[in-house]
Design a protein around this nucleic acid. Structure first.
Lengths: 204, 204
DNA sequence: CGCGGGTTTGATGATGCTCAAGCCCGGTGG
DNA sequence: CCACCGGGCTTGAGCATCATCAAACCCGCG
């Protein structure tokens, strides 16, 4: 490949690196050589719309960061209904933490809802990263804390807020998601059936 | 004070220190002088039954570890009903993480259900700890990860499991709690009214 | 034009809540 | 020793929320 042919690609990777850099410098500062180490431990992956990042039964041996696109995490209940847990968009870390920590088979599906570009860091590389740059322990501590706080908020909402209010809260909090995903997925995310959501929406 | 006079007290503190040490060494190894630093940053506190560790409106500026006793974390819904989120027993780290990270007023109550002895580490001392012994970043990263995984499990259960099954699962998973707390608190913890739990129990 | 995914509508029914009453039982005081 | 109290637990009738199932609708697309 000629240099000029590669130019656009290089630019794009540069953009990607800046996006994850911006995410990380919010909590820790690194030197240039530390950044080099960090990026050497990442894999760049692309998932086409409909492709699976993780399937039940697999062990989640990675953490991921979304550069562009849109992932959906869900599981199947006893009646084989899909229950959506998270919609992950750009600038978002994701993993099945339960499977990651226990090294047990995941119960979750993570699927690409759009063509999606991610950085992946494997369990092994993550351990190397912690060893070489302990500051990343801090970064992931803070990340985990915030993710935990967010989940706790959702948990409380789910318990304390009736379905109707959850929907109106959702369109207020995450308006852009509305255009990127079908209503049935939003219904499932909000803990109700698509039929019931439809009734809520037509009520006013 | 004479040495012999202090002996019992020392023994007791020794016991407490061993309990939190055992909890920590599961994930990180410290030298004796690091342990000294660690313990110098802790406060030992006792809460009598009924006393509050945290009230809504206060900012949670600490993490705590339970040496003995029993705490309950709950919030009030719109109808002023208490909704139990966690029962914390011995060997358990606790905090309102959401309030801790955002430094916003807590929405939660944490109350002692029995006389309870805890170690408290303040936000300031926690930062000092991270600075002096970065290994603790790792410890709390792992702790947060596991807490997150546990909450995710509960969240999925709450969504995917009917009330009846949640109760039978609970008595199987946490049988000792049954004797330490009234049924109405268990009902609230399991996301149902005390009346409904009562019917579940009498059904079989 | 017909197909198919997504959405809506309506009838029916289950799950679990509300409210009110009564029960059980240990503690306290006369 | 009994009477009464109060907290926790139970019971029952009626009801709200939300799920299920089946049918129809809408609309872009081949």
């Amino acid at each position: 490949m000629s240099k000029s042919f590669n130019l656009n690609l290089d630019k794009e990777i540069g953009l990607n690196e800046n996006s994850i850099k911006a995410n990380i410098v919010k909590h820790i500062k690194l030197t240039d050589s530390e950044w080099d180490i960090f990026f050497s431990l990442l894999d760049n992956k692309t998932y086409n719309k409909g492709e699976f990042v993780l399937k039940p039964g697999e062990v989640c041996n990675f953490h991921g960061f979304i550069l562009s696109g849109f992932l959906r995490t869900y599981f199947l209940d006893k009646k084989e209904h899909e229950i959506n847990l998270v919609f992950h968009t750009e600038d978002w870390w994701f993993a099945d933490i339960a499977s990651f920590v226990s090294e047990a088979p995941s119960k979750l599906n993570i699927v690409a809802m759009e063509d999606t570009v991610v950085f992946i860091i494997s369990r092994e590389n993550l351990e190397i990263l912690f060893e070489k740059i302990p500051k990343f322990e801090r970064f992931f501590r803070i990340l985990n804390q915030r993710t935990f706080a967010a989940l706790m908020g959702r948990y409380i909402d789910e318990i304390a807020t009736p379905a109707k209010d959850r929907y109106f809260k959702f369109i207020e909090m995450r308006p852009t998601i509305l255009n990127r995903v079908s209503l049935q997925h939003i219904a499932s995310f909000l803990g109700m059936t698509k039929e019931y959501l439809s009734k809520i929406r037509s009520d006013k």
